[in-house]
Amino acid sequence: LKDVPAAEQPELFLKKLQQCSFIFDFMDTLSDLKMKEYKRSTLNELVDYVTISRGYLTEQAYPEVVRTVSYNIFRTLPPSDSNEFDPEEDEPTLEASWPHLQLVYEFFIRFLESQEFQPSIAKKYIDQKFVLQLLELFDSEDPRERDYLKTVLHRIYGKFLGLRAFIRKQINNIFLRFVYETEHFNGVAELLEILGSIINGFALPLKAEHKQFLVKVLIPLHTVRSLSLFHAQLAYCIVQFLEKDPTLTEPVIRGLLKFWPKTCSQKEVMYLGELEEILDVIEPSQFVKIQEPLFKQISRCVSSPHFQVAERALYYWNNEYIMSLIEENSNVILPIMFASLYRISKEHWN
């Protein structure tokens, strides 16, 4: 590309894109070695080209870029070896075609981030159907691919105003399916990270639609499995909401109390961890609204026969901010906590 006159470059760019639409079989590791290497070097050249060149993004380039990217990334994901795939325990299936796939994602991100990129032209090709196929890929077991997808969808959400509501709705659907049907989708953490950034940018006052998403989707997402997989991302989204609008504290805490795990177990330890992150940002005026039901639950945890649950609940007394809230409201909290604290003071080492 850099060896031809500038005037010929846009056409050569299109030809090289078309060349890269050819898909090789990576399961057969020994086939087409030379041609695979040739495609890899061409993709590398395209990545460099969109990064440094100017004037390459002609109107004809948009459909070609989207077509090439689509040919390469949109595919049926390999079925998981076991339906009980646990990202914490099991080794993920890594994508065999990664040497090419990685460069295609790299190229696409540089294209979306290019200074010449015009959403008004691209929206003809990057549409709802494209987004739906992209969202399906978030179920990939390969964390490297999900990381690229996260950046791609984040950029698309940022640039295509017309797709925003659609993307949020589809993410809602994936979450609801995860909670009420499958309990399986590999990319929930990555989608939550994108949502955290979206919630962070919400304008005030919050729209009813956004509040509903918090109450109807994010709170029910507090299942045991969810917390073990993406507690940090979920807490981040909730805290973003509370920092935007502290009056949401009450529905959030009441929601969490409603979804509190039934049995004393390790799950409750995670739940207490989630709750502490929320209490860290709670406003005193909101705290008084929920302190009674909240401390009734904490009192139950403190006297839990499960040693770790009791200990995790007691650990709140090491948190200076929570401690200052308790002190200020001791007239309400002490009567709730006294019996449990008195009982364990006889037998608990802490």
Binding site: K150, H154, Y157, G158, L161, R164, A165, E193, I194, G196, S197, I198, N200, G201, F202, A203, K207, E209, A232, Q233, Y236, V239, E243, E277, D280, V281, I282, E283, P284, E320, Y321, S324, E327, E328
Partner: peptide, 28 residues
Amino acid sequence: PQKRLKPLKSPAPPFAMPPIKEDRFEKA
């Protein structure tokens, strides 16, 4: 009396991405 502590502003976790500003004219 002791002064009340301010709630901690939650620090951005390592995965936090730049915020995307909401477009006020966006349809629900």
